[in-house]
Simulated assay, not measured.
Amino acid sequence: MMPEIFKADFETAEICPSPNFGPRKDDRAIDMLLLHYTGMDSGEGAQEWLCSEESQVSSHYIVHEDGRVVQMVREADRAWHAGNSFWKGEEDTNSRSIGIEIVNGGHPAGLPDYPKEQMASLVKLCQSILSRYAIPAAHVLAHSDVAPIRKLDPGENFDWKLLAQAGVGHWTEPMAIAGGRYFSEGETGQPIEALQAMFRLYGYRIDVDGVFDAKTKGVVEAFQRHFRPKRVDGVADMSTIDTLHRLLSALP
């Protein structure tokens, strides 16, 4: 049975309805915008997969390399894009978010650039979504933010700064990478506990137990991939810690 055709929420979007959606649980208000890359060989193949019942995945939108925007799920509905995820104490991020897939081969393809036409369309789409919903700047996130280790998209080559300059998302210029004290996997103690508490306060899923384990390293990498992308190594150096502290200080 073909999914029902609907009117686009974003006025210039084409429609390719996906059968993979459902109601938002508990009538959750939309307060999050999640960005993904497709990680596939072609945009058309990615769109076909997201619109196939077989895949059991979807997103509200896909933005092609030429800037074309296609809507697959109504914004009012719950698309299946985030999977096992967490932010600010809640696991069902699909019920509170709008998901955008951006056509890009991602890490499997060696992190190709995002074309200017694509980024320009993405900015307009995000601005349109933000005009309709009360989404805080710090809730414009990467898939990797809400699912560290498991997901890497949209990747460290994605231009979050460009989005922030257009009023989309939370950003501060990262501190330059230099020497000094750092924390890494295997360390324990109160400083690690304080670091974990900072990441948890920002929204990440992390245990505040004073042990810099593999999960903590994964959260540090996810943060670096979004906010300090020049070096993604899971080491909490002064650049990473200072950037996190300034982002926390800027929260309302």
Rank of each mutant, 00 (worst) to 15 (best):
W171L: 11
D213S: 13
G179Q: 06
H107N: 11
G45S: 10
D9Q: 06
L195A: 11
F183Q: 12
A29C: 05
P112V: 08
G186H: 12
V123E: 09
S52T: 01
D159Y: 10
D237I: 05
A194Y: 04
I5M: 13
L162R: 13
S59V: 01
P148Q: 09
G106H: 12
R24Y: 10
D66Y: 10
L248K: 04
S18H: 02
A197L: 10
W87S: 02
Q190I: 14
V220I: 15
P191R: 07
G179R: 08
V73S: 01
G186T: 10
I135R: 08
M32I: 05
P3E: 07
W160R: 11
L162G: 02
P23E: 14
D27W: 13
Q127P: 01
S128W: 15
S52C: 01
G155F: 04
G105F: 12
G180Y: 03
S249V: 08
A137T: 10
F158N: 00
D27Y: 14
Q196H: 04
Y133D: 01
A120C: 00
E221T: 02
D113T: 09
G167Y: 12
R150P: 00
H143W: 10
P3G: 05
H60D: 15
P136V: 10
K25W: 03
G189D: 11
Q127D: 11
Y61V: 07
E75Y: 00
M40G: 03
S121E: 04
W80D: 03
G210K: 03
A46R: 12
S52R: 00
A29H: 11
G83D: 08
R24T: 05
K215C: 04
G167A: 09
P252R: 04
I62P: 08
R150L: 13
R74T: 07
L247E: 08
L122M: 04
T243A: 08
M238H: 03
G155W: 05
Q190M: 11
R228V: 15
I62G: 09
V220Q: 03
F212M: 06
A109L: 11
Q224M: 06
N104E: 04
A8Q: 13
G180L: 03
A250S: 15
M175G: 03
R246I: 08
E90T: 14
G99T: 04
G43M: 05
D9F: 06
D145F: 01
